[in-house]
């Protein structure tokens, strides 16, 4: 009865095996890949992307989709810089206030997103795509197309201060991923995401307030996007309206590659963590082995299709729209 090679187990462990396989593959081609310095590089690249991907994971588990991340990350990054400069320009001078401020802003953007989706009954992909464009537009308006820089060494310590070779931001992200896992598996809200994604009618019939759960999901996602915005500033030392560029493709690719089902109810934070690592290992590995970078996007696109084929039981889905 207990078959190790059952389909269920294969699906559960496939993403991790793919990750291990990729690491072995790239190391075999170029041993320089398997070095602490390179892993730190991968981790830094993955850190903001992981925050975005975790945010959207909650939404996808609910069976919805959120495409507002690029606008939200861009706007929060830009406004974080302005708030940081306005409140003193260094953490020591009181600019730390900008952090909670921007997290609240992320929550508000998510709230608007959720309210537009739920109250106006607009499909989530359309509502969030529109809010994302509004966010990017607002960021352009505020910056006037300029770049905003931050030169605070204490704040940049997120990138420059290293513990065991990895910068501080990697540890921050690890803690936040743990927090996300806790929300997912130990809170009512997390359980509700799965109930809504697994059977919305049933969740309703069990007395759950489905609309509220949906809105809260977008709020939570917004907070994680704001964290990504702040980390993006920490990483680059600057922000502009396009700071959020590329996050949509990277995050949704990661979530799907990690084995979270797009129709909801299946997968979770650990799938996303593995998915983000897979995507970043591939990006990094292709550079390390010397592939031209224009091949990378194409490879990633192929990878998504392969991952969906491998990691989901499509027989149980009667039709795919």
């Amino acid at each position: 009865m207990q078959r190790i090679l059952s389909r269920e187990n294969v699906i559960r462990w496939a993403p991790l095996l793919v990750l291990v396989g990729l690491i072995i593959l790239f190391t075999a081609i170029n041993p320089a890949f398997f070095s602490q310095r390179n892993f730190a590089r991968i981790a830094i690249a993955a850190a903001p992307a992981l925050m975005v991907a975790i945010g959207v994971t909650f939404i996808i588990v609910m069976g919805s989709i959120d495409l507002s991340m690029e606008g939200t990350v861009g706007l929060t990054a830009v406004l974080f810089c302005f708030a940081f400069l306005a409140t003193g320009g260094t953490l020591a001078a009181g600019a730390w206030v900008a952090v909670p401020l921007i997290l609240v802003l992320g929550a508000i953007i998510g709230l608007v997103n959720g309210l537009v989706h739920v109250k106006l009954r607009i499909p989530s992909f359309m509502a969030s795509l529109a809010i994302g464009f509004v966010g990017t537009g607002a960021a352009v308006l505020i910056t006037g197309g300029d770049i905003v820089k931050i030169n605070d060494d204490t704040f940049r310590a997120l990138l420059t201060w290293r513990i065991a070779g990895f910068p501080l931001m990697v540890y921050v992200v690890a803690v936040l991923a743990l927090l996300a896992w806790f929300i997912q598996s130990h809170t009512i809200l997390g359980r509700n995401f799965y109930a809504v994604g697994g059977g919305e009618e049933l969740a309703h019939a069990s007395g759950l307030n489905v609309r509220r759960v949906r809105i809260l999901g977008f709020v939570l996602a917004g907070v994680f996007y704001a964290v990504a915005g702040i980390l993006q500033v920490a990483k680059l030392g600057q922000a502009e309206s396009v700071s959020g560029a590329n996050f949509m493709f990277i995050s949704i690719t990661s979530v799907v590659v990690g084995g979270v089902a797009l129709w909801g109810g299946i997968g979770g934070i650990w799938n996303t963590v593995v998915g983000v690592l897979i995507v970043n290992v591939i990006n990094n590995g292709m550079v390390v082995i010397g592939l031209p970078d224009y091949l990378q996007d194409g490879m990633l696109g192929l990878l998504v299709i392969v991952a969906v084929v491998l990691s989901t039981d499509r027989r149980s889905v009667s039709f795919v729209k």
């Binding site: 799965y194 109930a195 059977g199 049933l202 969740a203 109810g265 299946i266």
Partner: peptide, 9 residues
């Protein structure tokens, strides 16, 4: 199946 239990939970 629709309103009684969530399969997967």
């Amino acid at each position: 199946k629709v309103e009684g239990i969530v399969a997967g939970m």
